[in-house]
Amino acid sequence: MIYLDHNATTPPAPEVLAAMLPVLSDVWANSSSQHGPGQDAKRALGAARATVARVLGCKPAEVIFTSGATEANHLAVRGLLAAAAPGRRRVVFSSVEHAGHLRLARALRDAGMAVDLIPVRPDGQLDLAAAQALLGPDVALVSLMAANNETGVLMPVAEVAELSRAAGARLHVDATQFIGKQPFDFSRCGADAVSLSAHKLHGPKGVGALLLRQGVALVPQTLGSQERGRRGGTENLPAIVGLAAALDLLGDVSLEAARLATLRDALESGLCQALPATHVWCQNVPRLPGTSYLRFGTLSVDVVLQRLDRLGVAASSGAACSSGGSEPSHVLGAMGVPADEALAAVRFSLGRSTTLANVTTLLNTLPALLEPLFNPTRNP
């Protein structure tokens, strides 16, 4: 199989599994217990926290372990909002946040909170002038992804951080797709809080973290003494150790980013040459090196994915599946893309396992399977 769906999830690295196994079998005590086995678990938890902090450029006390990025996002938004001054009751999201995060925005609005969405331009980039216009003295929090999960477009975090500071608002960044794919240093990113998830960078599912800048007030959403009282519940120690091991494996992210960008560009240029109806979104703006979001004319994505499956290629759609079928991507909708084109969206997301041979195989086989679909007189 050629796996080109790394933005959805990544396979756990062998080193991650090796790090987790001893914890599962031997260090299974509760880290809050005072006896010897409990203290062994506490030391393992502390070591994992120190590794996360070292790799991500933060202090160990700034790391809050969660069940994943979704919980981290909710903790950041609800917790920072609850801690805001009484006069600050408005929250600003981007219009292209992950669908799950926009559900939180709708829930806040349904609860009577003022919520605004920053638009994006047709090229997928955030409209900074609109962002500046939305940031007033009543804004408690801005929540922005670092990189879009569909288009791969990089968001102007530094610029939004400056605007947020000027308005006296907190900034939360969802770095789920960014960390592990681009260089990251919490001490320099300008955000007050940053979310991440282990399974996007070859760690286990069900664990993530919220990095919270020291001194920033946060009201916990799950009560308990764990995580310095900021997130109650017994820590998932094996998964936390796996997260730390996955981060420790990253090494020089820039080298891998350059390799993936070369492969991505070869894939896109090859497909555009073999199938002139190919259109690549956000091709000329800063984006993640391994993300390619495209369509083949207006061929149904379901048909394209079926043919990819025949080739043993795992890719994904840009549409969100519902019980009534597929709906156009809200990201492409925010960019002004017509529904028929959005329903043709295919996302290839390359990763650590992707090779030039994989790209060559796809270029040598996929056009032959798709080309007949543009000519109804030939059998597909």
Score class of each variant (00 low, 15 high):
Gly290Gln: 04
Gly297Val: 02
Arg287Ser: 01
Gly297Ala: 10
Leu311Phe: 12
Ser317Asn: 10
Pro286Met: 08
Ser317Thr: 15
Leu308Ser: 05
Arg310Ser: 10
Leu305Val: 06
Arg307Trp: 08
Leu288His: 09
Gly297Glu: 08
Thr298Val: 11
Val304Cys: 05
Thr291Tyr: 00
Phe296Glu: 01
Pro289Lys: 11
Leu305His: 09
Arg295Lys: 09
Val313Phe: 09
Ser300Trp: 03
Pro286Cys: 10
Val301Gln: 02
Ser317Gly: 13
Ala314Trp: 10
Gly297Ser: 11
Thr291Phe: 03
Gly290His: 04
Val301Pro: 04
Arg295Ala: 02
Asp309Phe: 12
Thr298Gln: 14
Leu311Val: 12
Phe296Tyr: 10
Leu294Asn: 00
Arg287Trp: 00
Thr291Ser: 05
Asp309Trp: 11
Tyr293Arg: 03
Ala314Leu: 14
Arg307Thr: 08
Phe296Met: 06
Ser300Asp: 15
Ala314Met: 12
Leu299Arg: 08
Phe296Ile: 01
Arg295Val: 00
Thr291Asn: 12
Leu299Val: 03
Ala315Trp: 03
Ala314Glu: 11
Leu308Phe: 09
Gln306Arg: 14
Pro286Leu: 01
Leu299Phe: 08
Val303Met: 11
Arg287Leu: 01
Thr291Gly: 01
Arg287Glu: 04
Val303Ile: 15
Leu299Pro: 02
Ser292Ile: 02
Leu288Ser: 08
Leu299Gln: 06
Leu311Tyr: 13
Leu288Pro: 00
Val303Phe: 07
Val304Leu: 01
Arg287Val: 02
Val304Thr: 10
Arg307His: 14
Val301Thr: 01
Leu305Asn: 05
Thr298Arg: 14
Ser317Lys: 09
Gly297His: 07
Val303His: 07
Asp302Ser: 14
Leu299Ala: 09
Gly290Cys: 04
Ala315Gln: 04
Arg295Tyr: 02
Thr298Met: 08
Tyr293Gly: 08
Tyr293Phe: 14
Leu288Val: 00
Pro289Gly: 12
Pro289Phe: 05
Gly312Ala: 13
Arg295Ser: 05
Ser317Leu: 02
Asp302Tyr: 07
Gly297Leu: 08
Arg310Tyr: 10
Leu294Met: 13
Pro289Tyr: 10
Ala315Met: 05
Arg295Gly: 00
Ala315Ile: 03
Val304Lys: 04
Arg307Asn: 12
Leu305Ser: 11
Leu294Cys: 02
Ser300Gln: 12
Val303Pro: 02
Gly297Tyr: 06
Gly297Gln: 07
Arg310Glu: 15
Gly290Thr: 03
Pro286Gly: 08
Val301Ala: 10
Asp302Thr: 15
Leu288Thr: 05
Leu288Lys: 00
Arg307Ile: 06
Gln306Phe: 06
Pro289Leu: 09
Arg307Ser: 05
Asp309Cys: 12
Tyr293Pro: 05
Leu288Asp: 07
Pro286Phe: 07
Phe296Thr: 01
Ala315Leu: 08
Pro289Trp: 07
Ser316Tyr: 02
Gly312Trp: 14
Arg307Lys: 15
Leu305Gly: 05
Asp302Leu: 08
Thr291Trp: 04
Leu308Ile: 00
Arg307Phe: 06
Val301Met: 07
Gly312Glu: 11
Gly290Ala: 11
Gly312Lys: 14
Gly290Asp: 01
Asp309Glu: 14
Asp302Glu: 15
Ser317Cys: 08
Thr291Gln: 09
Pro286Thr: 09
Thr298Ile: 09
Thr298Cys: 07
Val304Phe: 06
Tyr293Lys: 04
Ala315Tyr: 07
Leu308Gly: 02
Leu305Gln: 11
Gln306Tyr: 13
Ala314Phe: 10
